[in-house]
């Protein structure tokens, strides 16, 4: 077990969660909760893998994933924005639909090899002692994209005019409407962007960070963890980054925990009783619940919380929020 290895791996796999969570933050900031992240990610992962295999182009693969996730999210947008359907049920059915489509269209892709997004080492930055070794050496290009995404999305949401409009639509759509912000268009746009990023997050698994197509095990519940991260992060990209990376590190730590025969001077129970590993595998899911508990307590203390209009359909002229 090596701390540097755990940190490096955490940053790497945490990027998947990070991208998906920031996409979901944008969508939820506009008032549309999309629980279909898992389905969109899986569909995106499949699309990327398939296109990469057939065209041999990684760029096309990433575009396909972005398009695939975005396409699915438009179905959610139409149903929840125009038809005012319940966002929970719609998001859930999106997960079914995305998973089903991915499994059907991804038939026969298991075990194939495709071109992948390469790793890279950043000159100069990688020379910084310790930090350079962990953050800037031999990481996937999408990991670096993640580094840029965090400040960019934070700046966009909190410091720009479109970001202000986005938050207004999620907090008080009626007021935003009177100021001339097009509620429907804004919500469609950010739901779509959220879907695109979920698709990209899927691609970041299948053609970049842990390449391959393993049907529904490709995402294995990470989409749901991303949705939980949004709450943990209190709809803030920096929080999503911290949470995502921590989660990644935790997963690697769990894996490494099984290796050594001795732990802190004791016989390693996970090494000698292999069945205890099931409890290790439970841990991320238990921690997600604990993180939500913690997030909810913090939100109450600081009077933060979800965008006020999250989950509420907007109809002009009807009394709502």
């Amino acid at each position: 077990m090596n701390l540097d290895v755990i940190l490096r791996a955490g940053i790497s796999t945490g990027t998947i969660l990070l991208i998906a969570a920031i996409g979901e933050i944008l969508s939820e900031r506009s008032g549309i909760q999309n629980l279909g992240v898992e389905g969109m990610m899986l569909f995106g992962a499949m699309a990327a893998f398939k296109v990469s295999y057939e065209s041999g182009s990684v760029i096309l693969a990433l575009l396909a994933a972005i398009g695939a996730g975005g396409l699915l999210s438009l179905a959610h947008a139409l149903v929840t924005i125009h038809f005012q359907a319940d966002q929970t049920v719609s998001g859930l059915s999106l997960t079914f639909l995305g998973t089903g489509l991915a499994l059907v269209l991804g038939e026969g892709l298991t075990g194939l090899n495709t071109p992948t997004v390469p790793n890279a080492t950043i000159p100069l930055l990688s020379l910084i002692p310790w930090v350079g070794k962990i953050f800037f050496t031999d990481q996937n290009l999408l990991v670096y994209f993640g580094y840029l995404l965090i400040p960019a999305s934070w700046y966009f949401i909190f410091k720009t005019k479109p970001g202000l409009h986005l938050r207004a639509v999620g907090e008080n759509p009626a007021a935003a409407d009177t100021l001339g912000v097009n509620i429907y268009r804004t919500r469609y746009l950010y739901t779509f962007i959220g879907g695109c990023m979920a698709g990209l997050a899927g691609a970041s698994i299948s053609v970049a960070i842990s390449p391959g197509w393993y049907s529904n095990l490709t995402t294995s519940g990470q989409g749901w963890i991303a949705v939980a991260l949004v709450i943990f992060a209190q709809w803030n990209p920096t929080g999503a980054a911290v949470g995502g990376y921590l989660f990644g590190m935790l997963r690697r730590f769990m894996l490494d925990l099984q290796g050594p025969t001795m732990l802190l001077g004791y016989k390693n129970p996970f090494f000698y009783d292999h069945n205890l590993v099931f409890f290790l595998q439970m841990t991320p899911f238990v921690l997600t619940i604990i993180a939500l508990l913690w997030g909810s307590a913090r939100a109450r203390r600081k009077r933060l919380g979800a965008p006020a209009a999250l989950g509420v359909p907007y109809v002009r002229g009807e009394r709502g929020l």
Binding site: H82, S93, L94, E107
Partner: peptide
């Protein structure tokens, strides 16, 4: 039946259409 996702896909589509048709 192969491919294995068919029944999943049909279920998802049904649910989607049901909630859309609620309108």
């Amino acid at each position: 039946i192969q491919p294995s996702g068919v029944s999943f896909m049909i279920q998802g589509t049904i649910l989607f259409l049901v909630i859309s048709s609620d309108v």
